[in-house]
Amino acid sequence: MVTAAAAVVLGGVFWPLVIVLGAVLIPASIAGVLPTLLRYSILFSLPIAISALLVNLFFFPGGQTILFQIGPISATAEGLSFAIEILCRIAAFSGAITLFYLTTKPTELVLDLERRGVSPRLAFVANASVQTVPAMAERAQQIVAAQRARGLDTEGSVWRRFRGLVPIVGPVVLGSITEVEERSMALEARGFTRPGKRSLLWFPPDSPLQRIFRWLLVVGLGAIVAARAAGLI
């Protein structure tokens, strides 16, 4: 969060890139997740990056220096410059979020949040949402296989693939709804709706060094905001 916020506050191209390098790429490399991070991060941010590039390149208000024209619309140098700035911020955002996702176990995050007073229900919903994704993907694969075995065409033209989606999405969604109903009953039967705090079996260790580092990040962000406001950077 600090990484993304710092990139937005600093603006420009140089500092966000320094932040991406120092707070995302180097830590990801040390954690051994750099190739995965790059793949996920690009996939995650590609749609918004393309739209940000196109909108700013062609529709930047007050753009004077025309680079090229496509029909009635013009690409401007000012628009391109601003689009690159935005792309650097998007890179910081998606990189930081992806690094967090790749290096933090949802269970540990939720236990830590609960320890710090976050509602058990909120923590459960956050954790279960993440954990449900692979289960739903597995269910979808089973349904695709079953429907293909019954002659459904999931290959070929775009239109055929689109038509093939309907008999797949329906069972996936309806099956998940049924399962959620049963799961919520099972949770109730295990005392989940009891008001008050639940106990924790364990929680991730939080060393003094980690705490100091977290506070340093917050102080650092504050310093960046102050320096920016004062026009020092």
Partner: peptide
């Protein structure tokens, strides 16, 4: 259905089984 009865938030069987008693706020 065995799958829909699991909490989905436990990393181990031990944690899964402990989920209910933890909800009751019992001592660790």
């Amino acid at each position: 259905n065995p799958t829909s009865q699991l909490s989905q938030v436990a990393a181990t069987v031990f944690e899964e089984v402990a989920f209910g008693p933890l909800n009751l706020g019992l001592d660790r």
